[in-house]
């Protein structure tokens, strides 16, 4: 069963179509990234999944059903705005949200300390929320969302503003959850982060889907048959090679575009011996590039 199914979901705010006929299926046990520029409709979509906003048209089903109050204990939602009770302690917040999610007090006495340790806030357990730094605040909110290890995690921009250490921490926990069979949906416009984490991606722009599918498939589809090399020596001859259609050089790094159907290995054979090869990389387009290309194109379309 799919963890989440969106069917022709629409939402309009005044004149603006925030979400336009969105259809997608999120398989259980996957990490699904909602990518898109600011204002694309990611947060609106996530809010509609949580029934915080009601769609104007279409329907959304979570684990095969409409979202019910009981289902809420199987879902963890981390909103885009980082709101918590300012005067509560770190431990208090975890205990409070844990109780709201249905954990018993004996479960809480076990789970709260373990999560404190996991997000590295054990030594600040009695600090008030208002005294936390941004990163700590975000980690706390994340932990409060996930404290009962729900089957479906919906995270709105969970990585924004985190330093590299905390970033890795959160990513590690997300991967952990996926390995335990949970489904994780998160929105972001950090492409590098998404690349390392997502199984599937959904690229939205202006409320419409412009890309949806397995990350691996998408990347190989968009392969542009380019090679990046870093060499020492005389490189002028490279652009004269018959298999080479274009060369862009920046100092010692060359981006060589090959003709259609050419095996990159042929290029390697052609240059070895003539130059010293320090780096040879068959280029797969990064998510960043895919994003820029597609979003740019769709923006151009709409004008």
């Amino acid at each position: 069963m799919d963890a989440l199914e969106l069917n022709s979901v629409c939402k309009t705010f005044g004149q603006v179509r925030a979400v336009d006929n969105l259809t997608a299926k999120i398989p259980a046990g996957s990490i699904y990234g909602f990518l898109g520029p600011n204002g694309a409709g990611k947060t609106t979509t996530l809010r509609m999944i949580m029934n915080i906003i009601r769609p104007d048209a279409g329907n959304i089903s979570v684990f095969g059903n409409n979202l019910t109050e009981q289902a809420k204990s199987h879902i963890g939602y981390m909103p885009e705005e980082r709101g918590l009770y300012r005067k509560m302690t770190v431990r208090g917040i975890l205990a409070f949200f844990g109780a709201l999610k249905g954990l018993t007090s004996s479960e809480l006495s076990r789970v709260v300390p373990s999560w404190l340790k996991r997000i590295e806030l054990s030594d600040r357990a009695n600090k008030k929320v208002e005294d936390l730094s941004r990163g700590m605040h975000q980690k706390l909110q994340f932990a409060a969302t996930i404290i009962n290890e729900p089957d479906l995690l919906i995270l709105d921009e969970p990585f924004s503003g985190l330093d590299p250490l905390n970033l890795d921490l959160i990513k590690g926990i997300i991967l952990d959850m996926r390995d335990k069979g949970k489904t994780v949906i998160f929105s972001t416009h950090d492409m590098h982060g998404a690349e390392t984490l997502c199984d599937y991606i959904l690229l939205i722009n202006k409320g419409k889907i412009i890309l949806d599918g397995k990350l691996g498939d998408i990347r190989s589809q968009k392969a542009s048959n380019a090679v990046i090399v870093e060499v020492e020596g005389e490189t002028g001859f490279i652009k004269t090679l018959p298999i080479v259609t274009n060369v862009v050089q920046q100092k010692d790094t060359l981006e060589i575009t090959l003709g259609k159907g050419t095996d990159p290995q042929d290029l390697l054979k052609a240059i070895v011996g003539k130059v010293r090869v320090r780096k040879f990389e068959v280029k797969r387009p990064s998510l960043h590039e895919i994003f820029v290309t597609l979003v740019g194109a769709s923006n151009a379309e709409n004008y």
Binding site: I52, E69, Y77, P79, E81
Partner: peptide, 11 residues
């Protein structure tokens, strides 16, 4: 403080 969204995801 938008904590309302977190609350409503649970109750």
């Amino acid at each position: 403080s938008r904590i309302i969204e977190m609350l409503l995801s649970a109750v």
